[in-house]
């Protein structure tokens, strides 16, 4: 089983990202479980969602504390996040100067804010970075095809899917390991 945490702030599309990711893996033939973590819902407050993926039915009915991988939509949250040893952290960041290389965690970065705004997703105050980051995640993990991502975006997002696919493509191309 693999556990993925998605962490951002209200308005960035964290819950939507989790649901899209669960549907992508489901389309790839996995059993999936999407568990959003609800609290006080408002713009700007921390928002978390979790996805479990397995080859058999998923029976865990409790929250995930330390996932195998995290997708971080807002890096200001990073100090409060837990991750399993040997895990992967994909960060929405243009700047890597503050990141210390670690033997325990692999860091990947992509400037999803810039990409989202280039693709007219969200506003400069709150760019909608969720769909770009999943494109980058597809490249980093490589355990689902970009084509499946495209199909799920088309089914779930509707008219503006093409902008989100464009953002995912740009993030796929530009994500890099720190």
């Amino acid at each position: 089983m693999k556990e993925i945490g998605l962490h951002g702030r209200g308005g960035q599309g964290v819950v939507m990202a989790g649901e899209l990711l669960a549907n992508i893996y489901f389309k790839e033939g996995y059993e999936v479980q999407f568990m959003p973590s609800y609290g006080a819902e408002r713009r700007g407050s921390p928002s978390n969602a979790y996805v479990r993926i397995d080859n058999k039915r998923i029976l865990y009915r409790y929250s995930i504390k330390a996932p195998d991988e995290i997708i971080v939509l807002n890096v200001t949250l990073l100090p409060n996040l837990l991750l399993k040893e040997g895990g992967i952290a994909l960060l929405n960041s243009a700047d890597t100067s503050n990141l210390k290389k670690s033997d325990k965690v692999k860091f990947f970065v992509v400037d999803a804010n810039r990409i989202a705004l280039e693709c007219k997703l969200g506003t400069p105050a709150i760019p909608l970075v969720n769909t770009a980051l999943l494109g980058a995640y597809c490249k980093v993990r490589g355990d689902f095809s970009f084509d499946t991502l495209k199909k799920v975006y088309e089914e779930k997002i509707g008219k503006r899917a093409y902008l989100n696919i464009e953002a995912a493509e740009k993030a796929y191309e530009s994500v890099r390991e720190v």
Binding site: E19, A22, F26, E31, V32, Q33, F34, M35, P36, Y38, I58, R61, Y62
Partner: peptide, 12 residues
């Protein structure tokens, strides 16, 4: 059904 643990937990 248990709140969130069933109501909002999405699965096939």
């Amino acid at each position: 059904m248990d709140g969130f643990l069933v109501t909002h937990t999405k699965e096939p």
